[in-house]
Each structure stands twice: as C-alpha cells, then as structure tokens.
C-alpha cells in the first residue's frame, strides 16, 4: 500500500537553513546538506527546500546547493521559491532536483503550469498554494502569504490540476506557525475534489496533529519545519505513532 509521507521543509537563505515563524522571524538551524542527510537517515520520506531569498540572490547559490544535496542524499527532494521560468526549472532538474514547486508565478501566469508539465511531466511539478480565510472563504495569497488575492483556493487547486500539476502543497496561513494543528477541513475538501496528491502544511505542533491530518484531512503527505528542526517531534517516534494508529508509513 502507498504510504503517507513525512516531509521536513528546509527554508534556505544565503545557503543556510532557516525557519520563519509566521514567515517573519528567522532562526538559523544549520547546513542544508548535512541536515538533509540526517533527515534521510532517520526516515524522512522526502524533503522540500524553499529558497526564501530566491528573488534577491543569484541562482548559482541555490543550484550549487541542489547539486550537493543530490550528490549526498538518497531520498527525493523538491525545490521551490522564486521559480518562474522553464529555463530555471530545467537548471534545477539537471542539478538533480526531483520536483520543483511554483507558487506566485503560477497565479500571475497560469499557463506556466501547462508549459512546465508538458515539458518535464506532471510528476515533477508541484503547485504550492498559500491561503487564508477571509470572511469564511479560503483565498489564495501571494509572495509568502503577504499579498491577498480574490482567488478561491478550491477553484485554483482544480484549475492547476487540469493544467497539469502533479501535486498540491497547501499551506494554511491561518495555521502556519500556530502549532495548533493542520487545516483539516480544507484539506479534506481538496483531497475529495482533486485526484492528485495533497501535501498538508502549516500548523504542526504535536504527533496527534499528524494523525488528524491523515485521518480527518485525508492528506497524502504532511510537511513541517520547526517541530522537526528543533527536535520537538522526532521523526522515528512520529512514524511509529502513525503506524500504531493504523496509518501506513515507511518504517
């Protein structure tokens, strides 16, 4: 049976791993390559690298990091942050990234999803969506969640699926950094309305939150950062707890 995936997210700035608390406060948590290797060794199923400084830094730094990760890490990984062109995706995949995630650039020019999936295949195109509730409606936000749009989360998710996205990474801005659990209601709705995998992101605080997002949120994978980086939830312990709750995981 296909297992549920546990995905640590490593925010990258100036070649170092950082984690934003509510996307603002940045704390240093180490060297990305070393951290990635450690995560692979303790049973992380996949990794996401998010270059939060992608618009300010040259591509060379990230590409160099991607190459080093691909050299040393034996599990799949996704790279996101500031990706808006076919050439950029081509460079990242050639350096050994398994998937890329696009976010604001897809909202600004939805055809980009078609172009990328046609050229590289749906399997390597993740569309990341940041959303929060405004007057009870889930609205897509841009630029790391700072710019609201009028776009409905569910409409947008269905549109990118039709355009060829292979996976959705949904971050609830209402839950991110709160450690109060994932946005399971919205996740379950996404999972039932779409036929591609959904990654839950934002709100992980304890092991029960992961159990809930797989059971109630019907998520295919769950992503978190600080609870893993600061050892608050050890991944082996998390996966054993999931298994004990009859959730299929790779042990």
């Amino acid at each position: 049976m296909l297992t549920k995936r546990i995905i640590p997210c490593l925010d990258i700035k100036n070649g170092r791993t950082v984690k934003g608390v509510n996307f603002i406060d940045l704390r240093d948590a180490g060297d990305p390559v070393e951290l990635a290797k450690q995560y692979a060794d303790i049973g992380a199923d996949e990794l996401v690298f998010l270059d939060i400084s992608a618009t300010l830094e040259g591509r060379a730094t990230t590409l160099d990091m991607v190459l080093h990760v691909a050299e040393q890490v034996n599990i799949p990984f996704t790279v996101g942050g500031g990706i808006s062109s076919i050439e950029h995706v081509d460079d990242l995949l050639k350096c050994g990234a398994d998937k890329v995630s696009i976010n604001s650039s897809a909202v600004k020019r939805p055809e980009l999803v078609n172009e990328l999936s046609n050229k590289f295949g749906s399997q390597c195109i993740v569309v990341a969506i940041d959303a929060k509730q405004i007057d009870g409606h889930w609205k897509v936000h841009l630029a790391g969640g700072s710019i609201p749009t009028d776009i409905d989360l569910f409409e947008w998710a269905k549109e990118v699926e039709q355009r060829g996205a292979g996976e959705i990474l949904f971050t609830s801005m209402d839950h991110d950094g709160t450690k109060n659990g994932f946005a399971n209601e919205a996740l379950a709705k996404l999972s039932s309305e779409l036929n591609i995998p959904i990654i839950a992101s934002g709100g992980a605080g304890n092991i029960q939150h992961f159990i809930d997002t797989f059971k109630e949120g019907k998520a295919d994978a769950a992503l978190a950062a600080s609870v893993f980086h600061f050892g608050e939830i050890p991944i082996p312990e998390l996966k054993r707890a999931l298994k004990n709750n009859n959730i299929e995981v790779r042990l």
Partner: peptide, 13 residues
C-alpha cells in the same frame, strides 16, 4: 484508473 490518485507518488512495497 481514477479510483486512485494519479500519479502514484511516494513509497510503496
């Protein structure tokens, strides 16, 4: 078939 999510993505036995 569309009874399962496509693509299959992840770890299986």
């Amino acid at each position: 078939s569309n009874d399962v999510k496509v693509p299959q993505m992840g770890w299986n036995v």
